[in-house]
Simulated scan of single mutants.
Amino acid sequence: MHAYYSDRFVLPLPEGHRFPMAKYRMLRERIAAELPQVTLSEPQAASDGVLALAHSPQYVQQVATNTLPPLVQRAIGFPWSEQMVERSRRSVGATIDAARAAFTDGLACNLAGGTHHAFAEKGGGFCVFNDAAVAARLMQAEAHRSGRRHLQVAIIDLDVHQGDGTASILAGDESIFTLSLHGEKNYPAHKQLSDLDVPLPDGTDDAAYLHALDAALAELDARCQPGFAIYLAGADPHEGDRLGRLKLTVDGLAARDERVFRWLHERRIPAAVAMAGGYNQHIETTVQIHFNTVAAAASWSTRWRARAAA
């Protein structure tokens, strides 16, 4: 299985900043040491033209040239830097590369990504560009150019925060189905309308979460027959997450991933997987949750290739 990383582009953040930048390097190092079946690569940087599939050209230029309005820059949560711009482009590129690889391997991973709070004309919540929205539309364009049938896409967002930017960008686009399972009272305060929103109360545990996920996947099944999916596997529903309000265990999150990967495999839907959020009090726990996601994806990718070869 292929996995793409962009942790070489480290943002110069102020001391004490709450964004866990080190988790990306730590995750890549664990995968390199423990998952030899995963091929690690640096992604391409998304071009202005590719980003314009989901973002206004004016916003893309403002990001590139450090001319964002101060309130928009503050909402992103990072100070502007060249590293911020390059990392944001590479994070989108990693989901694009994972999406392309998934059509062969069944699953592929972006070791970052899941930047679902980025809107067409602004960023927010540590998100500059929306990798899922860009990659979904690019995969559709590439499918069309290759003469394949119209490609329906599902975005399965299981970060603890609602994918408000994704829902906004893709509102009214019947070719891309947006599902968000999230904390009802968590950020963002003002939610957007996904095709299917499943708001969960504070303190939701493993059993209640998995029951809600099963129901959501069943409804997705009834309303959409995707030929491709993007899965945002946030680590922040964990009970120890500083920015989450749910109570899932590490085992519960692993069961979540297994449900999603099994659902995709049974329907022969290739998927790109992004790690999305994770702000645990102990960064090692966040890395473990992300590592478990990648390990499970690699296992299901092996099954995909075996079935294709049979």
Rank of each mutant, 00 (worst) to 15 (best):
L71H: 15
V60F: 11
A136H: 03
A98R: 02
L107D: 07
G240I: 02
T293C: 13
A143Y: 06
A46R: 03
A32I: 07
A297T: 03
G244R: 11
A132H: 12
A306G: 14
V134H: 10
F129D: 01
A143S: 13
R74C: 07
D7W: 15
A22K: 15
K191G: 03
N292S: 12
A46D: 07
Q37P: 06
V260C: 09
V92A: 02
V63T: 04
V85Y: 09
D205K: 15
H161L: 03
K23C: 00
L68M: 15
H182Q: 03
L40T: 09
L217N: 04
E29C: 09
M275E: 10
L40A: 07
Q288A: 15
R8V: 11
R18W: 13
P36S: 05
Y24W: 14
P201W: 09
M26Q: 14
Q37H: 10
A98Q: 09
P36W: 10
Q61H: 14
A297C: 04
S180T: 13
G125K: 01
Q225D: 10
V273D: 00
F177E: 08
G124I: 06
E82Y: 06
E29F: 10
F78W: 03
T39H: 12
M21I: 15
S88L: 01
D241K: 03
H144T: 13
A118M: 08
Q73P: 06
D206Q: 10
M1R: 00
T286S: 10
L246R: 02
V153D: 00
T293D: 05
Q192D: 04
